[in-house]
């Protein structure tokens, strides 16, 4: 089973990002489970979402405390939240930041400036979808094709330009992430 935890702030789209990863993996024929955990949350408060991906039916539920990948949407969150909790040396910690953050973890730490990519391509700081390009690059758990399908599915109520811009942002992020 492959497990992903996403840390963001209320309004940054952590829930939507989990849904899109779930949809993409579902499209690839996997069993999936995605959900967001929140209490009396409001914009700006730290929030979390989760995805489980498996070949067989998923018998785990709830909070993911042993993730394979952690995605951090906001570079100020590691100061407030133990984003690396449960990551092993095989894990990946992926942070939306122009600089490599200093986080104490056995996992491999990667950063990508998804905010700038989003501003360049979408014209708005919509970095939750953008970051998924980096996830595809570093983990291969989801493909860019499946992500494109997930974006079309999840943003089907939005104008065509917005859907295309999100797809471009994901591809750009995939290309520049290293």
């Amino acid at each position: 089973m492959y497990k992903i935890r996403i840390h963001g702030r209320g309004g940054q789209g952590a829930k939507k990002a989990a849904k899109m990863i779930g949809l993409a993996a579902f499209k690839m024929g996997k069993q999936v489970q995605d959900f967001a955990l929140y209490g009396a949350e409001r914009r700006g408060a730290p929030v979390m979402s989760f995805v489980r991906i498996n070949d067989d039916p998923i018998l785990e539920r709830g909070y993911v405390d042993d993730p394979d990948v952690v995605i951090v949407l906001d570079r100020t969150l590691p100061d407030l939240v133990n984003v690396a909790e449960g990551l092993s040396e095989n894990g990946v910690l992926l942070v939306n930041s122009e600089h490599k953050p200093d986080i104490d973890t056995p996992a491999e730490v990667k950063n990508v400036d998804a905010t700038s990519i989003a501003l360049d391509t979408i014209g708005k700081p919509i970095f939750n979808t953008t970051m998924l390009g980096a996830l595809a690059k570093f983990t291969h758990i989801i493909s860019i094709d499946a992500l494109n399908w997930a974006i079309e599915e999840e943003l089907s109520n939005y104008p065509e330009e917005m859907i295309e811009a999100n797809k471009t942002a994901v591809r750009k992020c995939y290309e520049v992430a290293k």
Binding site: Q31, V32, Q33, F35, G62
Partner: peptide, 10 residues
């Protein structure tokens, strides 16, 4: 609540 209500499953 949450564990099913907010969780996507196929």
């Amino acid at each position: 609540g949450y564990v099913l209500s907010f969780t996507d499953e196929p």
